[in-house]
């Protein structure tokens, strides 16, 4: 029982994720600045932003639903923190695992998007409502390819548990090459999930101020930004566990360092992609996802099904 509390609150739960989230945000902003030929913020900038926001006033619109608005950031945060418990970090086994936990993790990671929608809808401001509707519309576009790629990887391993998948790929090291197409598609869909350029349409600053998050301020905004960072870390960890070779029968400390390197590499690729493109329009984004990404993900599923029949177990 005590160990469970330790896992949930400290490692790899809330405290570890918070610190890792700040480090990931610093890394993301510094890399983006260097790519744009600037110096970038100092190392304590994300912590300073968080502390500053905690001290600011929250202004609620008269028609907004205050209780819902105050609970939304908590829902999103809790869902992300719960998801990390099923992802292996320092070994081939996660803290808890059972057959079917990959579906649970994907479901838990969809909750933040729904929470952003509800937050925008219940803010009752024109900009928030447009942003909320855009969040959901974008969800329909990137969700299908993302799920299909992750489940394709699970199909090849013939199991629905992340920890067993990691064990399978460690025994058959060459097999993770089959999933490279899925990995590429998953990273592009990740840009949509994390609402980064070119898919940051729900939070388009120059069109709808801040989209769903226009009316949030003070402590709520601080929690929301922390949720963004933690979501980045958790989803990158999921991708690292599912697509990249992991574990490899080393000492746990080395596995942990490998894990850190893999997560930072995925974050670096995401940052690079977001400095590279302009923002797409919503109809262009949906057309792109359904015309190119979904067929490619479907092709990846087909390849894995065929390979499952051919390759030795």
């Amino acid at each position: 029982m005590g160990i469970a509390i330790f896992h949930i609150l400290v490692f790899p739960g809330l405290l570890f994720l918070t610190i890792f989230g700040f480090v990931a945000e610093y890394f993301d902003r510094k890399l983006c600045a260097r790519l744009q030929n600037r110096i970038g913020p100092p190392w304590f900038q994300p912590i300073a932003d968080f502390i500053k926001l905690l001290g600011k006033e929250e202004i609620m619109p008269r028609e907004a639903d205050v209780i819902v608005l105050k609970l939304i950031p908590l829902f999103a945060l809790v869902a992300c923190v719960t998801a990390i418990l099923y992802i292996p970090i320092w070994g081939q086994q996660a803290i808890f695992s059972f057959n079917g936990d990959i579906i649970v993790v994907l479901y838990l990671l969809t909750i933040p998007t729904l929470a952003y929608f509800l937050g925008g809808w219940y803010s009752r401001s024109v900009y928030s409502m447009i942003g909320a509707v855009r969040t959901l519309t974008q969800l329909f576009a990137y969700e299908v390819p993302l799920f299909m790629c992750i489940l394709a990887s699970a199909l090849l391993a013939d199991t629905w548990s992340i920890s067993e998948m990691v064990t399978f790929y460690n025994h058959h090291l060459g097999y993770w090459f089959c999933n490279l197409l899925g990995f590429a598609i998953a990273i592009v869909c990740l840009l949509g999930k994390l609402e980064k350029v070119p898919f940051d349409i729900p939070e388009a600053e120059t069109e709808i101020v801040a989209g769903s998050f226009t009316e949030f301020g003070g402590k709520l905004l601080a929690l929301l930004r922390m949720t963004f960072n933690i979501e980045l870390v958790v989803v990158a960890s999921l991708l690292a566990a599912v697509f990249l070779p992991f574990g490899l029968n080393f000492h746990p400390a080395i596995i942990f360092i490998l894990y850190l390197i893999q997560v930072f590499s995925i974050i670096a690729v995401i940052t690079f992609l977001r400095s590279l493109f302009a923002r797409l329009r919503l109809d262009q984004m949906i057309a792109f996802c359904w015309k190119y990404l979904a067929p490619a993900a479907f092709a990846q599923v087909l390849i894995n099904l065929i390979l499952k029949g051919i390759l030795p177990r």
């Binding site: 600045a33 260097r34 790519l35 744009q36 030929n37 600037r38 110096i39 970038g40 690079f272 400095s275 590279l276 493109f277």
Partner: peptide, 18 residues
């Protein structure tokens, strides 16, 4: 698409302009 990638990677190793 992504034509500016060359310039971005080059800037990573140059002195910052700010």
């Amino acid at each position: 698409p992504g034509k500016i990638a060359g310039l971005l990677l080059h800037s990573l190793f140059k002195k910052p302009a700010t």
